[in-house]
Design a binder for these strands. Structure first.
Length: 488
RNA sequence: GGCGACGUAGCCAAGUGGUAAGGCAGAGGUCUGCAAAACCUUUAUCCGGCGGUUCAAAUCCGCCCGUCGCCUCCA
């Protein structure tokens, strides 16, 4: 089955056919580096990281470009506010972005260009647009003349008249058309600037992406991604600039991820209901966040709230416990023979199917929710074997090993489940234990006392200890091998 | 005002023409001294409402109701 993707440009799912067989050229809008990243950035970047990984998984040679917007009004404002140079702001938040993305387990894109390192390329495009009559200069600024680009608004499917009727923007009298947008901004005194044919200034917001994508991917490339909120005006303007300058199609497939809501409300700085990635990672493991973000389809809105994160945590833990079972069964004694129990046969079927199910799910516009469902199904099969089969023979061992490998494939694409299971489980246990008001030593001591009580069948004392620990959020798990504990 | 998206069980969430995945929570059972975990069974005669197309619709079309987003910087 071929990969199908939802293309914002056509509003439909389409079969993905790259320009050059076997190769994919992909550009994703990065961040403007003026503040810490929030979970909206986390989603966008995790989603396209997953897409990047999957394209590679199915055998494409992928060139993935993600930019840093390192010069912008917001950066200048922040620098003025903090009383530091603008490049200090961008340098700092590039480092913070890199740190955040690394903690979320993202792979590095092929290229991570910066806007300020492409000023000559940007100026060249603006000049070309001016030569072709698509742009005009006014007192040091240069604007794109939207009236000259017939396809303007083809991505966001609006029309100029309606846009102007509902416009909430102050009209700039110097523009020929209120919808014309800045390609180059003349510098006011004290502002950072680069020399240009129009005087000292800096690039407009959209032009950098046209310049950098062209440099690394060519005039026409396969995939351009970003958050839904970038459709208008950012991506619309990129199309206008690039296609007007080059006279060739800009992008074949436009992919946009949905928003993150906070407790069902739009996340925004003015509402004060946004969380930075760092804040979230203080409360939840990075894999939990990643699992949560991928447990819904990338185009759907997703609601960030404690209940949903807790559910994600529980689900992820279930899978890791299952993986730990696979390891335990595989690493134990292997008996001779190749007969299979019902549960063994059932697992064999699930293992055989999982690879195909995963491909089908992902080929359908990267349906990670469905892919994860398949994984849960496999894990149930594993647990059933663990419960019902006391002996692992050669054949069952092979099946379990195949299950382990199948999960490994999914793990590499989703960027989850790639920890060693017992390490993950230990990690979340110590994370929770750190929040407890009782030390590990005290817990161990109480468990020892309880073991003694149980030995003498003093179950009253035994239950007393368990209830005491439970009141401190400690859950005990008795097994023939002894008692272990976990945090509720 | 213009444009667009969405509305599936208590909750989260797949499913775009063939008779409702998966997870969480709940109930019953197995196991256990009792629990926990795990496993088994179970939980939507039905997919916001009303019409229409079709042999057949949650899935296509129309209208209505509701929620949300974009139109200003935004992932």
């Amino acid at each position: 089955m071929a990969l199908r993707v939802y293309n914002t440009l056509t509003g439909r799912k389409e079969e993905f056919v790259p320009l050059e067989p076997g190769k994919v050229k992909m550009y994703v809008c990065g961040v403007t580096v003026y503040d810490h990243c929030h979970i909206g950035h986390a989603r966008a970047n995790v989603v396209f990281d997953m897409i990047f990984r999957y394209l590679k998984y199915v055998g494409f040679d992928v060139t993935y470009v993600r930019n840093y917007t390192d010069i912008d009004d917001k950066i200048i404002n922040r620098a003025n506010r903090d009383g530091i140079p603008w490049h200090e702001v961008s340098r700092r938040f590039i480092a913070e972005f890199d740190k955040d993305m690394a903690s979320l387990g993202l792979e590095l894109p092929t290229h991570q260009p910066k806007a300020t390192e492409h000023i000559p390329e940007i100026i060249a495009i603006v000049e070309r647009l001016q030569e072709k009559g698509h742009a005009y200069a006014v007192a040091g600024d240069v604007y794109f003349r939207v009236a000259t680009f017939a396809d303007y608004l083809k991505l966001s499917k609006r029309n100029l008249e309606d846009m102007q009727a509902g416009a909430r923007v102050e009209v700039d009298e110097r523009k020929e058309n209120p919808m014309d947008f800045a390609l180059w901004k003349g510098a006011k005194p004290g502002e950072p600037s680069w020399e240009s044919p129009w005087g000292a200034g800096r690039p407009g917001w959209h032009i950098e992406c046209s310049a950098m994508s062209m440099k690394f991917l060519g005039e026409t490339f396969d995939i351009h991604g970003g958050g839904k909120d970038l459709v208008f005006p950012h991506h619309e303007n990129e199309i206008a600039q690039s296609e007007a300058a080059n006279g060739s199609p800009f992008v074949n497939y436009w992919l946009h991820n949905g928003f993150v809501n906070i407790n069902s409300e739009k996340m925004s700085k003015s509402l004060g209901n946004f969380f930075t990635i760092k804040e979230v990672l203080e409360r939840y493991d990075a894999e939990v966040l990643r699992f949560f973000l991928l447990s819904a389809h990338y185009r759907s809105p997703i609601d960030f709230c404690d209940q949903n994160l807790t559910e994600a945590h529980t689900g992820l833990e279930r899978i890791y416990k299952g993986l730990a079972e696979i390891h335990r069964l595989c690493d134990g004694r292997v008996a001779a023979g190749d007969s299979l129990s019902d549960s063994g046969r059932e697992l064999e079927e699930k293992v055989t199917a999982i690879g195909i199910r995963f491909r089908e799910a992902m080929d359908d516009d990267f349906n990670t929710a469905l892919a994860i469902a398949g994984l849960f199904d496999l894990i149930r099969g594993v647990n059933r074997v663990a419960t019902e089969d006391s002996v692992v023979n050669v054949r069952l061992h092979q099946i379990l090993d195949a299950a382990r490998q199948a999960v490994g494939d999914v793990a590499r694409v989703l960027g989850i489940f790639s920890s060693v299971p017992v390490e993950y489980l230990g990690r979340i246990k110590s994370r929770r234990a750190a929040a407890l008001e009782i030390s590990t030593e005290e817990i161990e001591e109480l468990i020892a006392q309880r073991a003694l009580a149980r030995k003498t069948k003093d179950f009253r004392r035994s239950d007393e200890i368990r209830d005491l620990l439970l009141s401190r959020n400690i859950v005990l798990l008795d097994s023939p091998a002894g008692t272990t504990w976990g945090v509720k």
